[in-house]
């Protein structure tokens, strides 16, 4: 299975090579989709973890034991779909295909599994319905 998570770490927990451990210990095929690390070494990573379910679960437990916070990506992208008018403006610049609009009902659909946190939707939405924890 493929799972996208947001890993939030503080200066204290960033000393280890987490990604190396994830690959070596848990046999995870790992892609870093986005990294947002400040000068004090606090930061966020968006990781795509590709492995069987057990290994992914163990890997997440391992990261949490290292003192980093792990959240599913969909919890980190906020989309207020109750106010959405389905104009489709967000889908125009969403090249990952996470946001789509099509026949028959022409309503905007958000698939967080495809999101790469490019943040184009945050600026593209005329009603400002998207927000993320990431810097622009």
């Amino acid at each position: 299975m493929v799972k996208k998570v947001v890993v939030t770490f503080t200066a204290g927990s960033a000393g280890r090579s987490l990604t190396y451990e994830l690959i070596k210990k848990y046999d995870i095929m790992l892609s870093i989709i986005k990294a947002d690390i400040d000068a004090g070494r606090n930061g966020k990573l968006v990781l795509e973890l590709d492995a069987d379910e057990d290994h992914i679960r163990q890997a997440i437990e391992y990261m949490e034991n290292c003192g980093v916070e792990v959240s599913p990506l969909e919890n980190k992208i906020k989309y207020d779909n109750t106010r959405c008018i389905s104009c489709g403006a967000c889908t125009s610049s969403c090249l990952s295909g996470a946001l789509s609009i099509q026949a028959p009902d022409w309503k905007v659909v958000f698939d967080p599994d495809k999101c790469i946190v490019c943040r184009h939707c945050v600026t593209a939405c005329p009603l400002k319905l998207f927000s993320t924890d990431f810097a622009g």
Binding site: C87, G88, W106
Partner: peptide
């Protein structure tokens, strides 16, 4: 890639 700017769902 093409995308609308006006809402067809609302227009309907």
């Amino acid at each position: 890639h093409t995308a609308p700017l006006s809402s067809l769902a609302k227009a309907r």
